[in-house]
Write a protein that binds this DNA or RNA. Structure first.
Lengths: 221, 221
DNA sequence: CAATAATTTTAATCTAGATTAAAATAATCC
DNA sequence: GGATTATTTTAATCTAGATTAAAATTATTG
């Protein structure tokens, strides 16, 4: 099994090219492969969000890339894995936003605010779109559990931020679980009504963090 | 085409029973038919929310009712229409909540608060679950447009409430469009994490209205 | 440029699950 | 209780779209 065979590396084993290519070549290929793969995941996210899951065939995704449906199988074992990869990517982007917010925020409130800011920024920006996780239940058990786990961790992470904010006095007493659900829900729903629009994107980034966290502030002070 | 043939009435025409039954009978049938139909829509909503759209077959829905998949076709022309009906029901319930809130609320803020309260109450209560509208794009054009229209009206209605609240001074200046998107998103996302749990339901009803509208209040007073 | 590996396409299958027709059962009416 | 309509089931089809194998094309390397 050749390390240069990306289909194999990415999806298990399909072909079995075996010669090793030079290191420069490998890096180049890796890049090319990963680039296409990334484009594919974006295209898939776009389709899933805009046409619904059942409404998007692999051909739809392929069309976005100027490819044939069959070509997608070079990057992904099957449709289930395509969805899984989209969700994984979505989770990673969310995590990046939260990590950054945690690092930069000086108190709970600020961290919550920044998290919303960064996550929304990613969702409506160039790194988006991010796939709505509508079809977790139809993932195969391994994948489903992995996605559920990272999702849970993400939620927990945000609740921790809220709890910290209550501790440090920057956030008013509240049910962190429910508050987390509310804020994350509003964020997760964005792809439902937002579709690639630079102007609107600016507004979203400007407004959402304010709107979603204005209720967290302590009344007096 | 007999008026007593519900399959015909509901889905177009399949069989063509023609004799007219007595009025009492008709009422009784209507009731029975509608009851089963209602149960079916609930079962479908449950399945779609919990198993995802692609993950739920008509058999899954039928199992919930102790029926055969084929039996569903007595109530609905096809799967597309089942989804459509679910969405229509979801829209109606949302509208009921908003109408009631508008009637009872004495100012914009109160109306917004009550809307959240009533809608959430319905979603997590006995009249739920309400189907997440994930697959609007795969509805056939007529149905899709109808659902999109009522959704738009619903959004607009909420924005009007917010605008009224700003006018009457009960709500602070804000971008009503974004604020509406945020609040409605949080509500629409509920079925993603809430699954029939009386205890949790109480908490949701108690917390969500507060959480989602606390940011609307004017700072000073 | 020849050789090898990477990527994509062409052209079939394959299949779950939707859909349908006809028969069977249950309900209701006179 | 027999007749008529309403509801459900049984047992096949039917089909879009996923999947695959093999061939063709394109890129890369020395």
């Amino acid at each position: 099994m050749g390390i240069s065979n990306h289909a194999g590396a990415a999806t298990g084993t399909r072909r079995a090219g075996d010669r090793k290519s030079g290191i420069m070549a490998r890096i180049a290929e890796e890049t090319r492969f990963q680039l296409q793969r990334g484009r594919m995941l974006k295209a898939a996210a776009t389709c899933f969000n805009e046409k619904g899951y059942s409404g998007t065939s692999l051909k739809d995704v392929a069309d976005h890339l100027g490819l044939t449906d069959a070509a997608l199988y070079y990057y992904v074992r099957n449709k289930e894995e395509l969805v899984y990869q989209c969700y994984l990517r979505a989770a990673e982007l969310g995590k990046q936003a939260m990590d950054r917010a945690r690092t930069e925020g000086r108190c709970g409130f600020e961290q919550a605010f920044l998290y919303v800011r960064y996550h929304v920024e990613i969702m409506v920006g160039d790194r988006g779109p991010v796939a709505i996780m509508s079809e977790i239940p139809s993932l195969k058990p391994t994948h489903r559990n992995e996605i559920l786990n990272v999702s849970r961790q993400h939620s927990t992470g945000f609740e921790e931020i809220l709890a910290a904010g209550i501790q440090d006095g920057s956030i008013a007493e509240c049910d962190v679980r429910m508050t987390g659900n509310a804020i994350m829900g509003a964020i997760n729903w964005i792809p439902k009504w937002f579709h690639s629009d630079a102007l609107l994107a600016k507004k979203v980034v400007a407004e959402f963090p304010k709107i979603l966290t204005s209720g967290l502030r302590k009344n007096e002070s």
